[in-house]
């Protein structure tokens, strides 16, 4: 197996007064460098919460999260250097009221990178938006905005790219475009990708390994073939068959 990037041990995440945990993993979860790991599950299953934990945006309430060898828990904050090795692309990207190019350059600028032009151009080419470099971010369509969000994440060349339903609410053309970009990034840069989706077809198209999350618990994790063709858990079988599960 490749180098292990993430190891999650009995992670839980609670928010305020909620009685049930948003995420409560009974077993350990490991994500290896260079893989595309897709998390599926119905809305409210805790997918986005788990992604925020992986993105080191929020600390777990209990358990430990190991990322690139650093052990993090409820009391240990990740260093800035560590945090900058992972980028999360949100379902609803919020862009700065500036040009497309300025939005993409943001991650580089906060890292103190001075010569950003070439890097911005390169990534704009990658997402097919070079013609819009000087356009205001406010003039973009939903699909274009999501591609800018992808580009501003890619430009900093993260070890891990976390994608939270990046194609939700997009038309089939833009879904296909974004999936192509994700595959190209993985092929060319071997970037580790963790994708959250409730679209079972998308999971089939992109995943190398898949995990089903239900009510904050990881029900099953397996390779794409095993998960879709020979699911062990009846709830996974039901989810794969498009049945309603809670």
């Amino acid at each position: 197996m490749s180098e292990i990037l993430y190891r999650l041990e009995r992670i839980t995440k609670n928010y305020g007064e909620r009685r049930t945990a948003a995420v409560a993993l009974d077993e350990s979860l490991v994500i290896a460098r260079g893989e595309i790991f897709v998390l599926v599950g119905p809305s409210g299953a805790g997918k986005s919460t788990l992604l925020r934990l992986l993105g080191l945006i929020e600390p777990p309430s209990s358990g430990t999260l190991e990322f690139l060898g650093a052990r993090l828990d409820a009391h240990t904050q990740p260093s800035l250097v560590l945090r900058r090795r992972v980028v999360l692309v949100f379902q609803r990207p919020i862009l700065l009221s500036a040009s497309v190019g300025a939005n993409i350059a943001y991650g580089l600028q906060v890292r103190g990178v001075r010569k950003v032009e070439a890097k911005v151009d390169c990534v704009l080419e990658q997402v097919g938006l070079h013609a819009l470099k000087h356009a205001s971010a406010y003039t973009l369509s939903g699909g274009e905005a999501q591609r800018v969000a992808l580009a501003r994440a890619l430009v900093v060349q993260p070890d891990v790219l976390l994608l939270d339903e990046p194609t939700a609410n997009l038309d089939p053309y833009n879904v296909a475009l974004i999936e192509q970009i994700i595959q190209a990034i993985h092929r060319e840069k071997q970037t580790t990708i963790v994708l959250v989706t409730h679209n079972i077809f998308q999971a089939r198209r992109l995943a190398e390994r898949v995990g089903l999350l239900l009510s904050g618990k990881l029900i099953e994790v397996g390779t794409r073939e095993q998960f879709f063709e020979q699911p062990r858990d009846p709830r996974t079988r039901a989810f794969v068959n498009g049945e309603m599960i809670y």
Partner: peptide, 22 residues
């Protein structure tokens, strides 16, 4: 300003001060 913006900038590697200035 959309409250999620700060979290998104944070995720892009901004420090708390950098995100607040943005």
């Amino acid at each position: 300003v959309d409250p999620e913006l700060r979290q998104q900038l944070h995720s892009l590697g901004a420090t708390r001060v950098q995100a607040t200035l943005a």
